[in-house]
């Protein structure tokens, strides 16, 4: 791993947005795009973070009954990044392994959500336990 990769990510800005309605899903993904643009992401990276954000925030609303999304602008050794942390208070993803493989959905509507989002970003972490809600953290870095 290059030395810059090991450097700690500096958080430049942080904002928390509610996830209570469908309109909130649109607002959060729009905001993710704005931050990616501001950080100099190319079109492909912008689309990736925007789409991944949409999937995860919608999951939080539909499966988790809503929650909160936090967007951060990052800098790691001069490389720009955007991170989403999305937390819900739902029942938790019942079968995380299957959900991450894709093609599986608890409600039969969003089989691609988690697995698709994971393929679009550079770092992806999901913490979930039955009854404890789900938290997804994903990060996209600008191409050099």
């Amino acid at each position: 791993m290059a030395p810059t990769e090991a450097a700690e990510a500096k958080v430049l800005t942080r904002e928390a947005l509610p996830v209570r309605s469908e309109d909130d899903v649109v607002l959060v993904r729009r905001r993710a795009r704005e931050l990616a643009q501001r950080r100099g992401f190319d079109g492909f990276a912008q689309a990736a973070i925007t789409t991944a954000t949409s999937e995860i925030v919608r999951n939080a609303l539909v499966h988790g009954g809503g929650g909160e999304a936090t967007l951060e602008e990052l800098d790691r050794g001069g490389r720009a990044g955007v991170r989403l942390t999305c937390r819900d208070e739902g029942p938790g993803v019942l079968d995380l392994e299957r959900a991450l493989r894709g093609g599986f959905s608890v409600t039969g509507t969003l089989g691609l959500g988690l697995s698709g989002a994971r393929r679009l970003v550079d770092e992806f972490e999901v913490r979930s336990a039955p009854g404890a809600g789900t938290t997804v953290v994903l990060t996209k870095w600008a191409r050099r």
Binding site: G43, F44, A47, L112, S115, G116, R119, L120
Partner: peptide, 14 residues
């Protein structure tokens, strides 16, 4: 379909 949208959908496995 924009290039970045086409790329995103395929990378997601759609």
């Amino acid at each position: 379909l924009r290039p970045e949208v086409a790329g995103t959908l395929v990378r997601m496995g759609f």
